[in-house]
Computed example of a mutant assay.
Amino acid sequence: MRILILTSSTTFSGGVRQAVYQTAGLRALGHDARLCLPADSALWGLPDPEVWWVRLPEKQAGWRDALDTLIGGGPAVVHAFHNRAVKLTALWGLAWRRRGVACAAHRGIITRPANPLPYWSPAMRRFVVNSRACARSLRWHCPSFKIRVLANGVPDERVTPRRDAAQVRSEWNLDGAGLVLGNIGNDNPVKGTEALIRAFAAARGAAREAVLLLIGVTPGRWLPLARQLHVEDRVRVAGHYDHVSDLLQVCDAFVFPSQGMDSAPNALLEAVRMGLPVVSTDVGGCPDIVDGNGLLVRAGREDELTRALEAVCADAGRRAAWSVRSRELSSRYTVEARCRALESLYEDMLREV
C-alpha cells in the first residue's frame, strides 16, 4: 500500500513524533510509507534523517506538485497531521479521489475546530483521534461515521532501558530510599508540578518515606519549593533526560498531575508500557488510560492527589495488582498495534473511493 504521511508542523511535537512512529511502523509491515516534512522542519536538523523522509519544497505552493509525484497513478492513502496539512488535504483530496486516493487526518487535541470545513469535505474519509474525549470534541463538526478512535503508539525503544538499574539508583542517591514516585513533565504550570510537590509534602504514612523523582523540569524552578515545604531531601529533579526509561525502571509508581486537557499524554502511556501503577488527574483522555491500573483524581484537588499518593504507597498488594494490569494494557499502546489498526482502516477507505 502506498501511504503518504503529511505534516505541516516544523517542531518535534508529540503529533510529529506520532507521525514518525506511524510511518516507521507501517514500513515495518511492508507498506510503501513516506513521511512528508516541511523544508524547515526541526527533524532535518537531526544527525541521521531517515531515507523515507521527504523534504517538501520551501514554498507551500510547491507541495501539491510534490505530493502528486509521490502519489503517482494511485491508489494511495494520504494521512495528514496538523492543522494546515489537514486543510490542504481536504482541498486537494477532492481532485485526488479520481486517482483512487483516500484521505485521512490525525487529531490529538481536545478543542472544537475553529474551521469545520475540512471535517465536512467529502475528500476526508476518516479522522483518527487518540481518545474518546477527543472524539467527543468533534461531534458537532464531523459526521460520527468518519471518526475512529485509535490509541497512540509508543515505540519499544522508548520503554527499553539502556542503563543498569543499580547504576541509576546509585547516581540519584536512591539506595536505601523508600518507594520512588516518578513524574515526567516540564515547567509549564498546566503540567501540575507545583500541585504534585505540594501534595507529596502533605502526604502521611508510608508516603513520608517515599522519594519523588521529577523528570524533564528545571531544578532551579522547583527545588526552592521543595525546600520551602521541607521535602528537599526527598525530591530528585532530573531535568531534561533523553532516555526516560532509564529512570522509569527504578520507579515504583508514576504520577501524572496535569491540569490541562491532554488527549493521550505520551508520558502516561510510557509509564503504562513500563508496567507501572499510575496516579493521574482525570483530565482529557487520561480516564481511557487509567483502567484498573491505578487511581484517578480530580484536577485541581491537591487533597485528593495527596490521598492517592498515600494510598499507592501504603499497599504493596494493590501496587502489584496495578502493575500487572498496566502490563496487560501495554499491548494497546504499541506502534505495531496502532499500525495494524491503521492498515485495516486504510483498506476500508480505499474500498470506498
Rank of each mutant, 00 (worst) to 15 (best):
residue 203 A to V: 06
residue 169 R to Y: 01
residue 197 I to C: 05
residue 22 Q to P: 03
residue 327 R to N: 08
residue 175 D to K: 10
residue 216 G to M: 04
residue 141 H to Y: 02
residue 192 G to T: 08
residue 264 A to Q: 02
residue 261 M to E: 12
residue 129 V to N: 01
residue 320 A to R: 15
residue 12 F to A: 04
residue 61 A to L: 13
residue 131 S to R: 00
residue 284 G to A: 04
residue 249 Q to P: 03
residue 323 S to G: 14
residue 56 L to Q: 06
residue 309 L to N: 13
residue 123 A to C: 07
residue 262 D to F: 02
residue 173 N to M: 03
residue 56 L to E: 14
residue 37 L to Y: 03
residue 165 A to I: 10
residue 5 I to E: 07
residue 23 T to N: 03
residue 271 A to K: 06
residue 97 R to Y: 07
residue 54 V to F: 05
residue 338 R to W: 06
residue 19 A to V: 04
residue 306 T to V: 12
residue 65 D to F: 12
residue 102 A to P: 15
residue 51 V to F: 10
residue 27 R to I: 04
residue 271 A to S: 07
residue 309 L to R: 14
residue 210 A to V: 02
residue 61 A to C: 06
residue 105 A to V: 14
residue 334 T to A: 11
residue 326 S to A: 09
residue 237 V to W: 07
residue 163 R to T: 04
residue 352 E to H: 09
residue 94 L to Y: 08
residue 336 E to C: 10
residue 110 I to E: 12
residue 67 L to G: 12
residue 19 A to I: 03
residue 58 E to F: 06
residue 239 G to T: 08
residue 169 R to L: 07
residue 45 G to C: 09
residue 226 A to H: 08
residue 151 A to N: 04
residue 167 Q to P: 00
residue 147 I to F: 03
residue 241 Y to C: 13
residue 303 D to T: 15
residue 236 R to T: 03
residue 308 A to N: 09
residue 178 G to N: 05
residue 60 Q to G: 05
residue 200 F to K: 00
residue 52 W to T: 10
residue 250 V to W: 04
residue 328 E to K: 10
residue 101 V to S: 13
residue 6 L to T: 02
residue 271 A to H: 11
residue 22 Q to L: 12
residue 209 E to C: 09
residue 229 L to Q: 05
residue 259 Q to R: 02
residue 337 A to V: 09
residue 65 D to T: 12
residue 250 V to F: 08
